[in-house]
Write a protein that binds this DNA or RNA. Structure first.
Lengths: 335, 335
DNA sequence: TTGTAAGCGTTATCAC
DNA sequence: GTGATAACGCTTACAA
């Protein structure tokens, strides 16, 4: 029995197309198309016949053809620094849920916290003619390329020249932390920051609230890593004999701070209270459980998706600012 | 001055196409196409002229048109239970890096740990005519739909009827844990498991190695959550007066176990040694840092992508099994 | 080396 | 209510 020629090239098995369905159900391809789009304008029995044939052949309209003629892809490009960072995962979840309701899908690419690969990622998703795009924590200081009519929505701290943004009120987060420490009667405070605008805004809010209460605070700097948190805390503890509260710009660094305190035998929150930032899943797993400033990542992702959908629909859209929230846990209160 | 008519319908601004580039550089569209595909067959100066025009117009070949004629989409569908789970994030990272080198992109959809939404997710990515697909931890016990010539690759524990799999040797992980405890001279052991095949395989390996040493072990059951880890450990500690080592089926549960031990004033690893599973980022942040059985998530993702690419290329491909690795940290050894 | 022209799978605009 | 047919943006024989 004759074998199919086995070329070295991909066999390219195309599944049944609109033509075949049309031929087998004795109608024109236009009618088949109507059945799948504007069913109302087709006589019920014709419709039924077509639907049966389609089912028999396992036919589904190809979005390739459809999108080509419509000039849309029903795709949203998504650029994330790093997929394995849980906070970004939550944002992606929010985006996906919003898109799902409108039948759109997500094209994902990573920027690896680097401006060059961010650009590469953008070009990659652009090639697929995405209708819109969301970029989380952009690395580049110039606008990403975009064909006319397509827009990028940014989930990033404020950045000049980015028209559509979803961001967190970082200064408000700093104020929340300061107020909590004051409420607890702590007077010997410190802030452990990191490079970048987000950290400086958090610090700004923190400082503002403290100065209103006539208090100063000590400063140290890390890089958001656990180790840098430990080192920053050690620095602080060597220099200042009294310290009863530390506000840390990220939960991961806060984990390092807790470790440093533990190593020195300082009780948390008894002797030192600690507040982190982000409220990542990690926060509630540390010992003691970490009080943190919650960043509503899921909601921010959802808002970015809504914003993008409005733009795709040709509507106007405005940037949106989210407010953080204090989540009290053991590291500031009685366990 | 006349305003553009502002209809309620999407304006549909198409960006420059191959025709425009061809016209402006005084060649046929075929030549433009060749420049972007098979550059060698075009005279250098013609090529240069086209390239310049293309750059000026910001032209990039649309994959819609290209894929339509080629019958491929350069898209890989990816179905993940939950994007915010870091281990899955690592797998996605591995997949993306492999795809990136071959110019393919990832279409992401979530299954929310649920068979129905997994099917929905599959249909969603299938509509975009993906060339291949990867499913992480499938929920359904029937095969996902696939057009002829398209295949799903699974990153899942063994599951009957799934031809292309990437999986971890879970039993080997259990053996590693058992051997480590034996090496440390621990004799009063326990296993805290969870529902599902993965946990039972881990337990099987653990038990096998222990029985060779003539040892028995206690058992408790959780559900991979932190709280269930605490409860399981409490159960164990109430019933057995002596316990000097606990192997836990997941790092999150292990965090709960550490908490339970701490609450009872039991020193880790002094009185009780603990080994977790997965080696999630969390493991090295707990106090004490958790020894864990590492699951090479990134490599597993990369392998799944390679496998899928082979299938897309029409080649044969085989399932692959990865070996876990013991990562020693404070919870089993001296700090 | 380049151009012409036939498709790829659809939708949408006309007629009928 | 239905059928021709012209796009959509591109690749690829085949001719020149």
């Amino acid at each position: 029995m004759p074998e199919t020629t086995h070329s070295s090239v991909l066999p390219l098995v195309r599944s049944a197309g609109i033509r075949e369905v049309a031929r087998l159900s004795g109608v024109s391809i236009a009618t088949v198309s109507r059945v799948f789009n504007d069913a109302a304008s087709v006589r019920p029995d014709t419709q039924q016949r077509v639907l049966e044939q389609a089912a028999a052949l396992g036919y589904e309209p190809s979005s390739l053809g459809r999108n080509l003629v419509r000039g849309r892809s029903e795709l949203l490009g998504l650029i994330v620094p790093n997929v394995s960072f849980p906070l970004y995962g939550q944002m992606i979840g929010g985006i996906e849920d919003v898109l799902g309701h409108r039948g759109m899908s997500m094209l994902l690419a990573s920027s690896h916290d680097d401006a060059v690969s961010e650009l590469t990622a953008a070009q990659k998703v652009l090639r697929h003619a995405v209708d819109g795009g969301v970029v989380i924590n952009t690395q580049s200081d110039v606008a990403l390329p975009a064909p006319r009519g397509m827009n990028w929505v940014h989930i990033s701290p404020e950045h000049s020249g980015l028209p559509y943004r979803v961001e967190l009120d970082n200064a408000a987060g700093g104020r929340l932390a300061a107020r909590e420490f004051l409420r607890l009667g702590r007077r010997h405070l410190a802030y452990i920051g990191a490079p970048g605008r987000e950290s400086s805004e958090r610090q700004h809010g923190f400082a503002g609230e403290l100065s209103r209460a006539g208090l100063d605070y000590r400063r140290a700097q890390g890089d958001y890593s656990e180790l840098s948190g430990t080192q920053a805390a050690d620095d602080l503890l060597e220099k200042s004999s009294v310290l009863d509260a530390v506000f840390v710009a990220g939960d991961l660094m806060a984990a390092g701070v807790l470790r440093a305190l533990h190593m020195r035998g300082l009780r948390v929150p008894g002797e030192v209270a600690v507040i982190g930032f982000d409220d990542a899943a990690l926060a509630s797993l540390l010992y003691p459980r970490l009080t943190s400033i919650r960043q509503p990542a899921y909601a921010m992702g959802a808002a970015a998706a809504e914003l993008s959908l409005r733009l795709i629909g040709g509507h106007s859209a405005e940037s949106v600012v989210f407010s953080p929230e204090l989540v009290r846990r053991e590291s500031t209160g009685p366990p």
